[in-house]
């Protein structure tokens, strides 16, 4: 960590947990930018970060992960597929936006009758308004 904080705050490191492969990528990136580490230190840094800030679930890379879905523009099928909703729940969202206008924030979704919010919450990362 001492090599990391030569340039930036620890927040850059601890903000998100990563898999070992992702930590290798991140440490390589930083070494490329000039983090002064020897070969042995690179390996021990990756091990330290994987152990203390590790994750089994990868952060999806841009272009590689699932696309964002706009709840105001999505079709019934897209709402079902993206958020794991039933056909009835998807219809409720479409009906709500037709009657009330755009859904602008998470709080608006709480007002949609008949939608299981836990399903939506689980897929919140894919949602845009």
């Amino acid at each position: 960590m001492a090599a990391c904080t030569l340039c930036h705050s620890p927040t850059y490191v601890t903000r998100f947990d990563r898999t070992p492969a992702e930590w290798r990528e991140m440490v390589s990136f930083m070494v490329g930018l000039g983090a002064p580490l020897t070969a042995d230190e690179i390996e021990s840094t990756i091990q330290y970060l994987s152990k203390n800030f590790g994750s089994t679930k990868p952060l999806s890379g841009k272009g590689a992960g699932p696309a964002q879905v706009n709840v105001n523009q999505a079709t019934l099928g897209e709402l079902e597929a993206a958020f794991g909703l039933s056909a009835r729940e998807a219809e409720a969202i479409v009906r709500y936006r037709e009657q009330n206008g755009s859904i602008n924030k998470w709080e608006d979704l709480k007002r949609v009758p008949g939608v299981n919010l836990k399903k939506l919450e689980a897929k919140n990362g894919r949602m845009s308004f």
């Binding site: 850059y12 903000r15 998100f16 990528e25 991140m26 990136f29 952060l59 999806s60 890379g61 841009k62 272009g63 992960g65 696309a67 964002q68």
Partner: peptide, 8 residues
Amino acid sequence: VGIGADAS
């Protein structure tokens, strides 16, 4: 790479 790289 880095903070926000995963956010599309």
